[in-house]
Computed example of a mutant assay.
Amino acid sequence: MKKTLIIMSLLLCVSLVPQKANAQIAILEIIKAGIKKVIRAVDLKIQREQNKVIWLQDAQKTLENTLSKLKLDEISDWTQKQKDLYGKYFDELKKVKYVIAYYQRVKDITAKQVALVKAYDRAWAMVSSDKHFSPQEVQYMGSVYSGILSETVKNIDQMLLVVNSFKTQMADAKRIELIDKAANKVDENYSDLQIFTRQNAMLSLQRSKGEAEIALVKQMYGLQ
């Protein structure tokens, strides 16, 4: 009877691993879809703002060429009138250049998040197939990776909040605060994932026997 219970318990532990793997894959696909959504939104916004910059720069160049050609700089009254007339274009040009800088930073943060998901994908594939880990250990590792992935979902929400902030009259200081917060969180999650994966790699290396096995583990985890 005891033997039967032990066998059933072992089978249950082993059965949890593929279920955990399926859950990881499902979470990963959700996160990838969210990141792609943010990337598309940012790319579209950047393209629109860049087109606006090109148009405004052309307008500025045309005005400056006209002033130079007609040599009307000496007529201060006329020049001031033109500056007042086209002042809104120059103000808009300055504004959209700032917006592009914001969007570019959002895009850089999103790229880091893409790298995080790819790093997770590789790490989970390695530890889940590593024969040096027991099913219980793989299950634990999966729960830790799941926790990191859950945090990346919050990061996606934060990035979407930043993207949508450009549709509202949000102060630049507040927008910068949102961007900095998102950037710091992504860096923190990425660092946590790398540290945890390296710890797993070192544990696998310690359990390796023979030079051939050690070399294989180093190659698998990219250890020097």
Rank of each mutant, 00 (worst) to 15 (best):
V127A: 07
H132T: 13
G147D: 05
V138I: 15
P135N: 00
N155A: 09
T168H: 14
S146T: 12
E137N: 02
N164T: 04
Q136T: 07
I156M: 02
S165L: 05
K154V: 07
K131A: 12
S134F: 00
S128G: 03
L161A: 11
T168Y: 12
K154I: 09
V138F: 00
V138K: 15
S128V: 07
N164W: 03
V127R: 09
Q139T: 13
N155V: 03
V153F: 09
I148R: 03
K154P: 02
Q139G: 03
E137R: 05
S165Q: 09
G147W: 04
M170F: 09
I148H: 11
S134G: 02
S150Y: 06
L161Y: 05
A171W: 10
E151T: 04
S128D: 11
H132M: 11
A171S: 12
S129L: 11
F166G: 11
L149S: 05
V127D: 07
S129N: 15
V153S: 09
G142I: 01
F166S: 06
Y140L: 09
V163K: 02
P135D: 00
T168M: 14
L161R: 13
N164R: 14
V144A: 04
F133S: 09
S150T: 08
L149I: 06
T168D: 14
N164L: 07
Q139M: 10
S150M: 08
T152P: 04
S146Q: 13
P135Y: 01
S129D: 13
S165W: 04
Q158P: 01
V127W: 03
T168N: 14
D157S: 11
S146V: 03
M126G: 01
V127S: 05
L161M: 13
K131L: 09
E137S: 05
L160D: 07
V153T: 10
Y140W: 05
S134T: 15
F133K: 10
M170E: 14
H132G: 01
L160M: 14
N164V: 00
D130C: 06
N164F: 04
N164E: 15
D157F: 08
S128I: 03
V144M: 09
F133G: 07
E151I: 03
V144H: 04
A171H: 14
I156V: 15
D157P: 03
L161G: 10
M159R: 07
A171G: 01
Q158S: 15
F133N: 05
H132N: 13
V138A: 04
Q169K: 15
H132D: 06
Q136D: 02
M126W: 00
S150H: 05
V163D: 09
Q139L: 13
K131N: 11
S143Y: 07
V153Q: 09
M141V: 01
M141G: 06
S129M: 08
K167C: 04
M159A: 14
M159L: 15
M126K: 13
V144W: 09
M159W: 00
D130R: 06
V127H: 11
F166P: 00
Q158M: 08
M159H: 02
M159C: 06
S165K: 02
E151C: 00
V127N: 04
L161P: 02
F166K: 08
A171P: 08
V144I: 15
V144K: 13
M170A: 15
Q158A: 14
G147V: 06
S165R: 04
V144R: 14
S128A: 12
N155Q: 14
M141C: 04
M141I: 11
L161S: 13
S134L: 08
T152N: 15
K167M: 05
K154H: 12
